[in-house]
Lab assay of single mutants.
Amino acid sequence: MPSETPQAEVGPTGCPHRSGPHSAKGSLEKGSPEDKEAKEPLWIRPDAPSRCTWQLGRPASESPHHHTAPAKSPKILPDILKKIGDTPMVRINKIGKKFGLKCELLAKCEFFNAGGSVKDRISLRMIEDAERDGTLKPGDTIIEPTSGNTGIGLALAAAVRGYRCIIVMPEKMSSEKVDVLRALGAEIVRTPTNARFDSPESHVGVAWRLKNEIPNSHILDQYRNASNPLAHYDTTADEILQQCDGKLDMLVASVGTGGTITGIARKLKEKCPGCRIIGVDPEGSILAEPEELNQTEQTTYEVEGIGYDFIPTVLDRTVVDKWFKSNDEEAFTFARMLIAQEGLLCGGSAGSTVAVAVKAAQELQEGQRCVVILPDSVRNYMTKFLSDRWMLQKGFLKEEDLTEKKPWWWHLRVQELGLSAPLTVLPTITCGHTIEILREKGFDQAPVVDEAGVILGMVTLGNMLSSLLAGKVQPSDQVGKVIYKQFKQIRLTDTLGRLSHILEMDHFALVV
């Protein structure tokens, strides 16, 4: 994948999101292997301009796509893939009243899908469409860049269908997702969380590099694949309309690839034109409109599966009536509230959605109805927002919020430890010299600072030695090549209790 991002070429006709291997024109390309080798690009942008032909009021008969309808489940399912879809609609009884809503608040519980998330729908649909058009064949390999849930859905379907599955996901995604993927037989590649989507090191860039190296491999490409919004247009939206008897006044959905909100909203605009569509985008993402909503100094966020630093091709923002931004604290607070007060075992993005819903639905009156999409299960986040310690460490809970008995030293300040200034190293000294210094002084790690004293990161003896043994660096290389740029900081005025929580999850903390 090139470091400079080429513009994806656009073909003359058809839909841009065809499933299957992508040609340089962004659509299915038939021909000899030699032709494909000559024409197939190194990668295709996940934010390529959409060429979708959908228009409100256009006859369904003019759609270029294969459409399906929700099917009634048999008493005995032939395999677990038949437990994807037909998820329950559940009334939220307490939270709406707590925040003064007059309307009825309903939750579409997508964590009841077989793999635990709304992404099971698009995973199965992308595979079925690729099999139907002859792209996927027995023994082929599926590769997908994902925040985890699409990966789980694909790995689940691949396990049943017999495909090899490789999932490329950023490091910030939970260990629970990784464990589930491994249990399903998927191979996992992790990428830096802070890598831009168009960087060769991003999950998108690495996935395309693997595709170019592995024979008979395919990126189904949830960011561009029409099967993504079509899955929701054909099934999720129809289920909502049936469950609500066609009567709903507002739908609120958090947005990642945009397939969920695009597919549902398009069908609702056709069948229930008075329904307002509300999009939820986390602070630090750029999906919301108008652009002024996205202006923030924050560039990272903890909530998973929603928000991006690019506009995915499948996201149709014209069908969203209003956007709201959400933050991590309210997302996790509301997710825990949904679990504790409503018994809905949902993930953090569901918290984002409901946090926005109780604001947006203030305009609705008694007798009206708001539906929220709860995308995934708490299963993926047992060591994250479900953990009091994690919430404390991230600053989303305060010590006084917890009532468990603490040891005698818990409320003492870090400054009472009488710490001395640490050994520091410059980023320009060599790895070999740094190892000598650390061994001589008896230290395992040291902060790396520039000549102005600005902290650049941390270097550890173990990481340097393993990097040297693996051949990633040489003793003569500058130590700046092996620094940890993500590390926890703590102030002298913070409590030892807070430091204790940090050290339970990290090997060190830097006192500043």
Rank of each mutant, 00 (worst) to 15 (best):
G20H: 12
I76H: 06
S174C: 02
D249P: 01
L77H: 03
D79A: 03
D198H: 06
K269H: 06
I127K: 06
P49H: 08
C15L: 10
E128K: 08
R196C: 08
Q222T: 01
D120V: 01
L28N: 10
T141V: 14
G139H: 14
E176A: 07
A107M: 03
E110L: 03
I167L: 12
W54L: 06
A24H: 13
W43Y: 15
W43R: 12
L106G: 08
I92N: 07
I84P: 07
D47Q: 06
E171H: 06
S254V: 14
P74C: 15
G11I: 02
N194D: 13
G57Q: 08
L241R: 11
W54C: 06
G134M: 06
S175N: 11
T262E: 01
F99M: 13
F197Q: 07
S61K: 08
E239D: 10
V118M: 11
E176V: 07
S63P: 11
K102V: 01
H17K: 03
Q242D: 13
P170S: 04
L181F: 05
H22I: 05
M89D: 05
L251W: 01
V168H: 03
G57V: 09
S73E: 04
I44P: 10
G57I: 08
I80Y: 03
E171R: 05
H218V: 12
K36H: 12
S27Q: 11
K97L: 12
D198V: 02
S3A: 11
K94R: 12
T146Y: 02
L184T: 06
Q55I: 11
I264T: 12
D238G: 10
V10S: 15
D245V: 08
S123L: 07
V206W: 01
A114P: 04
G246V: 05
A48M: 09
K75C: 11
M173H: 06
S32I: 07
T191H: 00
K75R: 06
D133M: 09
G258T: 00
I76T: 03
A8P: 02
P16I: 12
I214E: 05
I264P: 00
D129S: 11
T53F: 04
V189W: 08
L220I: 01
G185A: 08
S19M: 08
D221L: 04
G20Y: 02
K39E: 10
A183T: 12
E9Y: 02
G148A: 05
L210D: 01
A226F: 01
I76V: 04
I142G: 02
P192Y: 02
K177I: 00
K98R: 03
G205A: 02
A114N: 06
P215G: 06
V204L: 03
M250H: 01
E171D: 10
T236A: 04
P70K: 10
K267E: 09
D86S: 10
L77G: 05
Q242S: 13
Y223I: 02
A24N: 10
Q242G: 13
G258R: 00
R121T: 03
N194S: 13
D249I: 00
S19G: 10
L81K: 05
H65C: 00
E131G: 08
V180C: 06
G246D: 06
F197W: 12
D86M: 10
E239T: 05
G263K: 00
L181S: 03
E213I: 08
T53L: 05
N149I: 00
E34H: 10
N225M: 05
I152E: 01
R276E: 06
I240Q: 00
K119H: 04
I76P: 12
Q55C: 13
N93V: 03
A155I: 03
P46R: 01
P78C: 08
P16W: 04
E270K: 13
A265N: 08
D179T: 07
K39H: 03
P88Y: 06
L136A: 05
E110F: 01
F99E: 09
R276F: 10
H218M: 09
P33M: 08
A38N: 09
E239I: 05
L154P: 01
G31V: 15
V252Y: 07
K102R: 13
I167C: 09
L248C: 13
G185E: 09
C165Q: 02
